[in-house]
Design a protein around this nucleic acid. Structure first.
Lengths: 358, 358
DNA sequence: CGTTACCGGTTAAACGATTAATCATCTGCA
DNA sequence: TGCAGATGATTAATCGTTTAACCGGTAACG
């Protein structure tokens, strides 16, 4: 209908009041009579008024936008996380600006700088493992691992791993192979540590895939057939992706899952429910994590700046609940251990595999 | 160093010039003597000047931000796409604001509205299949399928499918099972149509998983064992996710891939190279697609508004190159057809499977 | 009765950058 | 000398919103 996009002044003119009154009425801040508020609301809606973020941002110094920095967007866990973050942010009336740090630290710093230049009010950072978030002049929430210093909120990877370990233990597994990627990741350390704890006094081997691939080349065999031969009855992978790799390698070798070997993953990614057999895994409650992270940042934004420790350096915020429980999802890839398999188990066998196993 | 964050005026004061000159010098627009430009640049850098997006946006009416609307962020293809889009956008100095339309059309419209309210200069939309993008008052690039009306740029799914079909044909496959999700998707129609064309006069069956699951429940068996029994030697899936489902179902049934049956996917997602055997697939050149989409939107933004067809309705932009070629990635999941298998092929067999096969 | 408090608004000054219009010099040329 | 044109910088208006300060009038209060 209207040719021009309406501003506050247009509504004000239409009703014969001042723009200030319109502003107050719409924001509910100043003192405006209820009936006038109603009339202003009505005409605003009628005219299809859309407030100018630019104008507001200039005046208030707030952009209404949060930045989301990810170590690597192509990480398969990212979609769920981004979705959850976007969701809770938009519920709070904030937008999400994404930035990819391509895995390395300098790029991460640059990404953070770009977001600052765009005027974000705060940021959520899922850092490269071991990375220190720095150089942000706004509140920052860090999602990594509860054992990472400076972490704001994260899934309780350790307890999750423990749950998985107990699940396997309850099925009678006494010789378990753990598959990790990197020894330097806090998340991975937590997860596998938890699994070990949950397994109790079972016989546990660990393979670090990065080390293995450094020698045998990327995409190499994980040697699962041999592992099974020496008595392993369950494989606990650090992630669903690794679990998938293990599952197909086992199947390819003619080893039945879960009859011969059980397989577990982490994260409950999209394919976990799609493969045959479905992957037993430990699900992250990304929605809750996102809610907490967003809430923490928003709190910090709305604080009238607390301690004196505020300068051009931003502070990483803290959350009321830093650990979010994980949920065990039992599918078909885990089952009770075969009697025959547990009999052939040989505790000495794992001494032969050398330095790759710790 | 400096307590206050510097504005244009601070630089101007420091050098005894006007803010207009500083603005001109930094943007390179007006007429400023080269040496003065240099001095201004220097002090700007020294003072750590960061332009205020809000101020600039208010004045110019441009926010420097593009919106990215996705039908469903949790789609496994999204990470690659988002990464690519973010990349080309940031190369052009633009930021990316994400919005999730949760799959349904009303949410998509709302998501678009939210982006408009945030003042985006343009948008990239990956629509829900069959959805019409509407209600945007800014340039919009649509990434869907070349056969979708209003599409801006997309992978050449048909030719990609053809390449995959030819690959299978060259390996001697004469009885192929196609796995699709939905008949209503243009992308899927293109892909499977291309595969059929590439296969020539081979015997082709098609299973639509959505239909099948509507009857047999989600996660049900695809009946691949039976398909192989009636002579199928290759399974061409609509996506890597479906291919993964097929691969594991076959392996679980004790059918060897690729010895007994070949499997192909689409998209080259993260797990394609990780599973055993690695998935032969058709890769989308997301980087190029993103570049073209971004360039098209930016062109439209910088146009001094072309035709008269501009009102409050935004126009979906067109690109110079609407189809981007796909790339065949051959891994271990495809191989030559077994002699015995092709001998036992029975053209009549597929008449028994009923309405699920078209 | 004088003072205070509140009520329902209005005024006007920011916020920080861009840009059309203007102006003061200087150069070149008839 | 006088005038046109180029050069390099300044002035001032403007984008749209928020908000502290202000204002006339009435009601409450000591």
């Amino acid at each position: 209908m209207s040719r021009q996009k309406p501003r506050l002044a247009r509504i004000a003119d239409a009703l014969g009041v001042s723009t200030a009154t319109v502003s107050n009425a719409l924001s509910g801040k100043g003192r405006v009579s209820p009936e006038l508020v109603e009339r202003i609301r009505a005409t605003a809606a009628e005219l299809g008024y859309v407030p100018s973020v630019a104008g507001r941002a200039l005046r208030t110094g707030r952009s209404g936008v949060l930045g989301l920095v990810l170590a690597d967007i192509s990480n398969p866990l990212f979609p769920k996380l981004a979705q959850a973050i976007e969701n809770s942010a938009s519920k709070a009336g904030y937008g999400i600006l994404i930035a990819d740090s391509h895995g390395d630290v300098t790029a991460q710093t640059q990404a953070i700088e770009r977001l600052i230049e765009r005027g974000v009010d705060g940021m959520i950072v899922v850092p490269r493992r071991g990375t220190w978030v720095t150089g942000a002049s706004c509140p920052v929430a860090v999602i990594d691992s509860p054992s990472t210093p400076g972490n704001t909120v994260a899934a309780d990877h350790w307890t999750g791993g423990q749950g998985l370990g107990r699940h396997l233990a309850s099925l009678g597994h006494k010789h378990v192979l753990l598959l990790g990627n990197s020894t330097t990741s806090n998340v991975q350390g937590d997860r596998l540590g938890g699994v070990k704890a949950g397994l109790g006094n079972a016989n546990v081997e660990t393979i670090w895939i990065e080390k293995l691939e450094a020698k045998a080349g990327p995409g190499c065999s994980l040697g699962l057939e041999e592992a099974v031969a020496r008595g392993v009855t369950a494989v606990a992978a650090i992630s669903d992706l690794v679990a998938l790799r293990a599952l197909t390698e086992l199947q390819r070798a003619g080893i039945a899952v879960p009859e011969d070997v059980s397989v577990t993953g982490f994260d409950d990614l999209i394919w976990s429910s799609v493969v045959t057999p479905g992957l037993t895994t430990m699900r992250m409650d990304v929605a809750t994590i996102a809610d907490i992270a967003i809430a923490a940042v928003l709190d910090a934004i709305n604080q009238p700046q607390s301690t004196g420790a505020r300068g051009s350096d931003g502070d990483t915020v803290t959350a009321s609940q830093p650990k979010v429980p994980m949920e065990l999802v039992v599918r078909q890839s885990t089952g009770p251990v075969k009697i025959s398999a547990s009999l052939t188990d040989n505790k000495e066998a794992n001494l032969t595999v050398g330095e790759l196993i710790q």
